[in-house]
Structure formats: C-alpha cells, structure tokens
C-alpha cells in the first residue's frame, strides 16, 4: 500500500519560545496519501507543531527548535532542520493554510500569481495556467473567473479560504499543513472545504489541526492527541469511528 512509506518524519522535536517550552520531544510520521489530524485542548501547541514542519516558528522572535524534521522527495530524504537548509525550498514543498483566511489585499489573480512568479520564478503564461488549474481544484473557478481583478477581500470568508488553499496548491507542494482551516467558516462553507480535503487526500500527505471532533471523525485516517506540548495518544480509524467510544476517549484526554 502507498501508505507505508512516510513522507514526513519528525524526531524528538522540541520547540521553545524564550524559555517557555511549547512542544516537548514530538515524534511523528506522515505517510503519503494520508490525512492525519491533531486534536487537543486550546494552547496545547497544535499550531506550533504545524509550524515546526515548515519552520515558520522561526519567523517569530525568541524561538528555539531542537530535533530533526525530514521530508522525502522523489525517494530522497532531506533533513530540513539543518541550519543551512533552504527555507524557501522547504516552504514550497510544505504548503500551509492558516486558521483565518489570510489573503493579501491584492486582486484575486495577484494573490495566486505573486507567489508563483516570486517564489517559483514562473513566466506569465505558466503562472496563468496554474492559476486556472488551482482555482478549478478548489471549485472556485466558476465563481471568480469573471472577477479575477477584484480585490480578494471582496470574497466571502469561505471563498477566501478556498483561495488561500488554491494559492498553496498552485505551488505544487508535497505536503499540506492545515491549521483549523474551517474555524472561521459557516456550515455551508465548511462542508465544501471538507469535501475538498477528501478529494485532496489522494494527492497529498495532509497534516491538519482541528477543534471539531465530528470533522475529525469524517476526515481523519489517523488522529494524534496533543496535550501540554506532548503527544499523548495515537488513534487509528477503528478507535474513533464509533461516536460513543470516540467521545469517551476524548473525555479522557481533554
């Protein structure tokens, strides 16, 4: 099965800000074509864990990360935690969608083309081609194809979040990090995004954070429970599929 070969491998990852330890010796493997969800109480370090993968924590002052993060690209393991590892390459391979839609206050088109042109150095035609493909992938093309020049902030919350996802997909990453991507959306928009993740699962390895146990049960292949910065449990589908037993397990950990 394609699941067996891990895409992402985190070993003994510890993250601290100033002197406060946020994550403690995290070990985690993510297989290709797998959607792994991280759950846990607020403030337990879920977002920090995602940001440890693409080293985004280092953009914030006072962060110290220890341990090793490796990703496998075309049958080669790359150690991303070394000091001289090119951060740009890492972030192009590991795409991230934030908790709140974080479109840039440019046009819809520019939100998509800017990273393609700046980070990937693509020419205009290739960038345009990818824009359409990515918007089709997130079922946004028909909704925005006539208003690509409009400011992205004029889109609804759900559309903005799908635009953010399209922006990441256009860069053609191998791994997706999703930080509660439906947290700020209504029921309808959430449904749409969840269906989208179901279809993306086939093509990407996905590591997602969620606060919703029902969403977890609908989407996850595997669940990791994080508490006070430590991974305290790993659950397979059979353990959280049943609503009652899932609730009982979560009561225990939260």
């Amino acid at each position: 099965m394609a699941f067996q070969e891990p895409f992402l491998d985190m070993r003994d990852v510890t993250v601290s800000f100033d002197t406060k330890t946020i994550l403690e010796r995290i070990n985690l493997r993510l297989n290709s074509g797998e959607l792994v969800m991280i759950v846990g109480p607020s403030g337990c370090g879920k977002t920090t864990l995602l940001r440890a993968v693409n080293r985004l924590n280092e953009e914030y002052p006072g962060c110290v990360t220890q341990g090793r993060v490796r990703i496998r690209i075309q049958d080669k393991w790359l150690d991303c935690s070394t000091r001289d590892f090119p951060l740009i390459d890492l972030r192009l391979r590991v795409g991230m969608v934030f908790q709140h839609p974080n479109v840039l206050p440019f046009s819809i088109r520019k939100n998509l083309t800017l990273p393609l042109r700046v980070s990937l150095g693509l020419d205009k035609d290739e960038a345009e081609r990818r824009v359409q493909q990515a918007l089709e992938d997130v079922w946004l093309w028909d909704e925005v194809k006539d208003r690509l020049r409009d400011n992205a902030l004029t889109l609804s919350g759900g559309q903005q979040q799908r635009l953010c996802l399209a922006r990441v997909l256009a860069l053609d990453p191998a791994i997706l990090l999703l930080d509660e991507p439906t947290a700020s959306l209504d029921f309808k928009a959430t449904q749409k995004i969840e269906a989208l993740f179901q279809s993306l699962k086939e093509r990407y390895a996905i590591l997602a954070v969620t606060h919703s146990l029902s969403q977890m049960r609908r989407l996850a292949d595997r669940v990791l429970v994080l508490r006070n910065g430590e991974l305290v449990a790993e659950l397979g589908r059979e353990e959280f599929e049943d609503q009652e037993s899932c609730r009982a397990i979560m009561e225990e950990y939260f």
């Binding site: 953009e59 740009i88 990441v168």
Partner: peptide, 16 residues
C-alpha cells in the same frame, strides 16, 4: 504583522 507569516509560508525570501 499581518503579511509576514503568510508570505514566508508561501516561500518568499525576505528581500522579495
């Protein structure tokens, strides 16, 4: 404050 993390996550170098 609002754009840094977004752009870093999209692979922008700091000068660009």
């Amino acid at each position: 404050r609002t754009a840094r993390a977004t752009c870093a996550a999209l692979g922008f170098s700091r000068p660009s």
